[in-house]
């Protein structure tokens, strides 16, 4: 019964929160409408039969969030320096990274992390050989980037999703 009406409770609560933020009020009517919207949209989402996400370790999720925030700050400064440096020959290129992570949600999170960090971008993913292709703006040493991605992000994502 509960599964039927609340197939995705987290999604429903998030939609309610977004609704309350947009309306900027806590009036009973707003909360009621937001709750109805949250439940209805979550049920519609369930009709798409999405694969279930299972996050095991919420402590690691927090660690990952802090780490990604710090990295975004640092690489913003690094990329800004590269752009403003005059006439520096830039060595950028593609890097192929063999992955151990196979969970689809984990890969989606990794894609968002790599792309939102300035200086690196997710290019493509080979699902049969499990090889990820990224493009790096300032490529000095391929091995350094492979180690960075694997050690800083992939290990945490393996702990969270697999």
């Amino acid at each position: 019964m509960i599964r039927r009406w609340f197939p995705h409770p987290v999604l429903s609560v998030l939609l309610l929160l977004i609704w309350l933020l947009l309306k900027q009020s806590l009036a009973p009517g707003t909360i009621l409408l937001g709750a109805l919207l949250g439940i209805a949209l979550a049920r519609m989402y369930d009709l798409l039969r999405p694969p279930k996400a299972r996050a095991h370790d919420f402590h690691l999720l927090g660690v990952l969030f802090v780490r990604v925030t710090i990295d975004i700050f640092r690489s913003n400064l690094a990329v800004a320096r590269i752009i403003l440096a005059r006439n520096r020959s830039l060595n950028s290129g593609f890097v192929a990274i063999p992955l151990d992570l196979t969970d689809r949600h984990g890969l989606a999170v990794l894609a968002c992390i790599i792309t939102s960090t300035p200086g690196t971008i997710w290019v493509s993913y080979d699902s049969s050989a499990n090889i990820l292709l990224i493009h790096v703006l300032d490529l000095a040493d391929e091995q350094v980037w492979i180690d960075t991605i694997k050690r800083r992000y992939e290990r945490l994502l393996l702990g969270i999703f697999q």
């Binding site: 975004i72 990329v79 590269i82 752009i83 200086g119 971008i121």
Partner: peptide, 23 residues
């Protein structure tokens, strides 16, 4: 946006606008 204008090829330029969308 300076990076968007100054960097040399598409794969380099694609990194530049992320500065505006993040920080």
């Amino acid at each position: 946006s300076v990076g968007l204008l100054r960097l040399e090829n598409f794969y380099q330029r694609v990194h530049a606008p992320t500065l505006g969308t993040t920080l």
